[in-house]
Design a protein around this nucleic acid. Structure first.
Lengths: 187, 187
DNA sequence: TAATTATTAGTACCTGCTACTAAAACATAG
DNA sequence: CTATGTTTTAGTAGCAGGTACTAATAATTA
């Protein structure tokens, strides 16, 4: 990388750290062909904290998001649960779940909400989807609060049928029927 | 906190750091009323890395997750496309998309693959889901390669009906009908 | 009581910094 | 071309939160 002006370097540093906050000052100094001290001064004037602080902030910030669509956890917040009977969860949507242009929530978030609620309502902690039968009428807009209700409608041995509805202000935006099979009993 | 046995303390440390990985050894030593050295030994035998490593791993994990199911990316790889007619995409599944215990792919990945392909096949780059009618028979296992085919079956004004099938080795694992509405024409 | 296990203390060293001082390199105006 | 200001570099001391190691002291158990 050749001689570039201070202001230009500042822009670049900002950009680089935005897309990848894990660079040390030393790595940046090599990248830009300046001394470590210069990078330090740059960070100072740009108000960019040190590596460890940046990493920490990424870690804490996203901890919440991960919980929402991470592991096998509930997508949405489980607010009522009667095992093997019924369950209710809510999900506050936001623009990060929507198509940028239309602000309409991507279908798979809604599907994921329904799926995880259907799984949560079954007592056996490992269950799998056999069949889903979905109807999704009205598009959901970013900012709307989804309320999902699940009800176990049938059980045959290790097989469960669960119906899930999702509403926004009492208007149904989604419904489906899930066939779940408990693994515990099968193996 | 009173005298507790080593093994018990180990369990507690594990639990505490699992729910909150941001404690320093010193904070832990105060919490458990033992010396910092003891906490170090504990971490060693439990194979728990130091604070900074824990924070870093949370940060990187989160960053990937946000990127993986974040953007408006195609879920799967688009390998053939005839606008407004049909399209094919493939998706190589892996364990990160599956439930840890059963290795069965989470339903919403499959749904997302179908949804994005249905959107891709329509020329207008902003289209939204009106209705989806889903059947999902066979569970997909981590490692299997999904092949999705989309076909526009009907068009009425700004409304499109798209059928999507997903196969694994010519066995249908999913099918659905999407109703899409082009925004360009509506607005 | 002796042997074993668990805990504590202490030292040297590491990374990735902050905070500071001071010198050198470069650019620009008079 | 020289004086002045800006930018960059160099170097030192110190900090947090460790690793890796040695050695001594408690506590437990045989």
């Amino acid at each position: 990388m050749k001689k570039i002006k201070k202001t230009e370097r500042h822009q670049e540093i900002r950009k680089v750290l935005k897309s990848n906050p894990f660079f040390t000052d030393e790595e940046l100094s090599e990248k830009f062909g300046v001394s470590v001290q210069t990078i330090r001064l740059d960070r100072m004037s740009l108000n960019i904290p040190e590596l460890r602080e940046r990493v920490k902030s990424v870690a804490t910030k996203n901890l919440q998001k991960v919980k929402s669509l991470g592991e096998d956890e509930i997508v949405g917040e489980l607010i009522d649960l009667q095992l093997n009977k019924n369950a209710i969860s809510i999900l506050q949507t936001d623009e990060s779940m929507a198509f940028t242009k239309t602000k309409i929530i991507k279908g798979y978030y809604i599907f994921a909400m329904a799926e995880t609620l259907a799984l949560a309502v079954i007592e056996s902690n490992v269950a799998l989807i056999g069949v889903a039968n979905v109807k999704n009428r009205v598009p959901v807009k970013a900012g709307e609060k989804l309320v999902a209700k699940a009800e176990v409608i049938n059980k045959r041995g290790s097989e469960y049928f669960v119906r899930v509805w999702i509403n926004v202000n009492n208007d149904q935006v989604f419904r489906s029927k899930f066939r779940l099979v408990s693994i515990d009993l099968e193996v």
